[in-house]
Amino acid sequence: MLDELIESGKSPLLNIYFTAGFPTLDSIGEIMRGLERANVDIVEIGIPYSDPLSDGPTIQNSHAAAIKNGITIDLIFEHLSHCSSRIPRIIMGYFNSIFVYGIERFCKKCHENAIGGVIFPDLPIEIYQEKYRTLFEKYNIAPIFLITPQTSEKRIRYIDSCSSTFIYAVSSSSTTGKGKNVQLAHDYLSRLRDMELKNPIMVGFNISSKSDFDFVTHYASGGIIGSAFIRHITDSTSIEEDTIKFIESVKTGRL
């Protein structure tokens, strides 16, 4: 499903990140239904971890709350197996979670649950290529790597050559939801655009509104929203409806 979407060349693509098991243990299904009804293009399911190094307070707190709610990797897959949603799915997780769970076991489960791609922010491409690539290829799961404004052109080209779906461009040097102004990233994003990479680019971190989304998709194929969405559903009592409202606000600029 992810492959087909990328091959279709559709743009701009809206990718929404949510933390599995937050705000409630059973909310995965409601969020997925809301995202489907609102025609989101890609959903990124976050595996909660006790020490999410790349994340700012919003996502950190959602991880801590989800763990407290009792979420586990097995439960995430169980919930996903009951979701009929056809939106292409990717998983974002810290490497320790997957390593301890068992990498092949994880790949199998991803395969069974229509997960097309994985993002492990703390697994460097070199270690992935050397130790884990064969396993992920066996199960047809695409790795999605991050690049940042500090990543050299040579390294970006190397990452492009190892990727098969899209490249995740971190908008600025920051943790997630830091509130840095994404609209200052003109130089960086135009440099990426001009490189004419083989894979499309999705921009993430510090995107929270229609104007941010429009700005980044002027340069790239899509945008990824996480912290802003998490904040929106934190205290929600009707998660599916609030999910739809949030997506509409990103699409229309009205909340």
Partner: peptide, 21 residues
């Protein structure tokens, strides 16, 4: 502890069966 990644290195870690520190 069991083997895992903490603070960006592979080492022994006090963690749950689900990899939570």
């Amino acid at each position: 502890g069991t083997q895992g990644v903490l603070h960006a290195c592979m080492t022994k870690v006090l963690q749950t069966a689900d990899g939570q520190v």
